[in-house]
Structures are given as C-alpha cells and as structure tokens.
Amino acid sequence: MDNEGLKTILSAWAEGLEWPESPQFLQVRVPAPALHDFARRLKEEHETAFDYLYCLTGVDWPEYMEVVYHLESSRHGHRLVVRARTAGREDPRLDTVSDIWPTADAHEREAYDLLGIRFNRHPDLRRLLLTDDWVGYPLRKDYKDEINMIEL
C-alpha cells in the first residue's frame, strides 16, 4: 500500500497523531498512552499487517526521550516509522511492545540498559549489555565517565 493510503487508514485509529516529514519513510508520531493499542492494530489489522519490527531505537533528546520503531510488512512489503515520546527525561516510561513483536523484548532491554527508558509491563527488564551494578545510562547525552570516555 502506498504512503497516502496508509496515512488515511492510520489517521482514524488514534487521536493526536502527528506526521513528521521525512523523505525516506512515512513517519507517524503516536502519543505515548495510545502506543500499545496502536501497535497492536498495526500488526493485527489485515490491510496494514506490520509483522516485522526490524529496528527499535531509543533517542535522547534535550527535553524528552523518544523511541523509534521501524516496521515492515512481510505480506504487503510497505514500511512505516512509528515514533513515541516519553513525558520527560527523568523517569522516561513507555508501554512495551514485546508482546506484539517478540524481537522487541531484547531491543527494549537494550534501550533500557543504555538509555534508561523503562518499558511498562516488560516481562524481564534487566541490564543487557552492561553489568547489573552499572551506574548510569551511557548513551544519554549527559553521561559522564572520567575513566573510560575520551572526549575529542
């Protein structure tokens, strides 16, 4: 399905959707509370059928955290980028999508580990790459490590 068609379908699904401009993909910003239901419909509705989450990225912006979901449909071949913002940087929280796309389980753990984004109702939210007693979240812009980081 082309981007215009997708946009028409998705617009009806939730309130407060925003459509950031991007030359490469169709992008949609979903309000955090509506994220889980929106994601579920994206996967389960026949005409969208986004069953392949190929990338999940956490981004640290000055005011808030953002999680970017890159989605593809193995049935229709169309792609979509879903973005969701957290309320702030201090205790960023979003709903998990690991029950919808199992691969998100590990990717969300990574985002939690490196950026400190907490995913509500995630089955096993622990440190993934770093040790359990690590202090801080290295991918945040304000992370300081006097010993290991070399600033150029």
Binding site: C55, V59, D60
Partner: peptide, 14 residues
C-alpha cells in the same frame, strides 16, 4: 546526533 546499528545477530540470538 544518534547512530544505531541494527545488527542481524542481535535479533537472531534472542
């Protein structure tokens, strides 16, 4: 500003 590598092995492992 941010760079993310989606590595195939990561998804394949879990």
């Amino acid at each position: 500003y941010r760079l993310k590598f989606r590595s195939p092995g990561f998804s394949n492992l879990f």
